Amino acid sequence: MPDGSLPTLGPQHGLPPLARKGRGAGLNPPVRFEHSAREAFDDGWGTLEAAFADLPPLPTTLTKDTAKSALAWNQSPDIGFDRSINPYRGCEHGCVYCYARPSHAYLGLSPGMDFETRLLFKPDVATLLDKELRKSGYEAKPIALGANTDPYQPVERTLKLTRGVLEVLDRFNHPVTIVTKSAGVLRDLDILTDMARRNLVRVCLSITTLDARLARIMEPRAASPERRLAAVRDLTAAGVPTAVLAAPMIPAVNDAELETILERAAAAGASHAGYVLLRLPLEIKELFEEWLARHMPDRAARVLSLIRQTRGGALYDSRFGVRQKGTGAYADLLAQRFAVAAKRLGLERRGGGVGGLDCSQFRVPAVPGAEPKQAQLALF
């Protein structure tokens, strides 16, 4: 577009996608809460074709998030935690299937290309967390770090917000679980190793595929599969309990790799494992369909047909209890395959690792720099 902004367009308009090198989404769907949307329109003079012929790389922009709370709470019956922390909104990894994409609409941004290029970060997340953990009546239960977007996405290398959160949790002896696709978690091995000795941490590496080429188009800015497996080995060697999440499993795309992923994970030292069937809520349906048509035109129809077989004829079923596993013969077979492989390899279900964390050690430390009397008062 002339002003440099991203329009809403895609194959359904007979126009080129917005696909950029190193990015996952090829569209920028309109924000579902807005009453109007802009679309690129070909006026017959060939101007759009020329404008989109050689799109330059799209940079990542960062905006401060003035959040007033570090913790997000949920009451979902099929999620194994009731609180989480997300230092970032949006994720530069660019996973086209990411279930968190629709959350960007709450910011007035598109769940498509905006989600992976226009990020919000919470500079005060560690300070806010410290204050919340000091509140009277707070009861410690495992906090999920990275439940929505990856806490170790590329910008964490410089902002170090996740490390700040871990430093707070370490001081409070507060249990935490981490889910990431990044080998960057090894940067904080000093903190994680110390917390592991107190049974306060579990790390879960998400491994979607072992095929580097497939990983590059599905998760363009995430660590390679081999680097993630290496991270499992290093974490395990350091005494940090580690799980592997084979997710998402996509019919006729990566589902054949389920057993191999678990085998490689077990060989690397993982003690727990889990899997999730592909989820396509809200705008992700359109994003995934465009991605399929662009990268796998020969099997796109077959993939979508199999997905519908697991979702009662639709592309998604949001009901609690079935949204992560699906229903029908294909979904049942996938669940059986996982159960058999996990048992054979001695891998426990991922939820067991979360439940085993020790919440009894939680203590509110003295306020840094406070006088002894003030420090005592800070406990109340």
Rank of each mutant, 00 (worst) to 15 (best):
L258Q: 01
A270H: 01
I79Q: 14
T63K: 15
A300M: 10
A246N: 10
L9T: 00
A252H: 12
K135R: 15
N173F: 14
A246V: 13
Q153S: 10
A301E: 15
A378E: 14
L292Q: 03
D82H: 13
T60V: 15
H93I: 15
R363M: 08
D358T: 12
L128N: 08
L58M: 12
E348D: 13
A268F: 11
G346A: 11
R302I: 11
R216D: 14
P123A: 14
A314P: 00
R349H: 13
V96W: 01
L200A: 11
L6I: 15
L200G: 09
P17Q: 12
S206G: 10
R187V: 01
L18E: 10
T158G: 04
E34A: 12
K160S: 06
L129Q: 11
P29N: 02
A370P: 04
E348H: 12
V253C: 04
A67R: 15
P154F: 08
E39N: 04
G321P: 05
A231L: 04
N74V: 07
G108T: 12
V165W: 03
E259V: 14
W291C: 14
R344K: 14
P251V: 10
V354W: 15
P248R: 05
E289S: 07
K135D: 01
L145Y: 01
P111E: 01
R319W: 03
F338P: 06
S103G: 02
L109D: 07
A196M: 05
L27I: 13
R216Y: 06
A247L: 06
L214V: 06
G14Y: 06
M296R: 15
A370Y: 08
A212D: 12
M195Y: 08
K122V: 06
M249F: 05
T60K: 12
A105T: 07
P30A: 14
L192V: 11
G137K: 05
T208I: 03
L145F: 02
H174N: 05
R319C: 09
K21Q: 13
E92Y: 05
A238M: 11
H13E: 09
A72S: 14
L357M: 03
T236V: 14
V201G: 06
V367Y: 06
C204Y: 03
V201C: 09
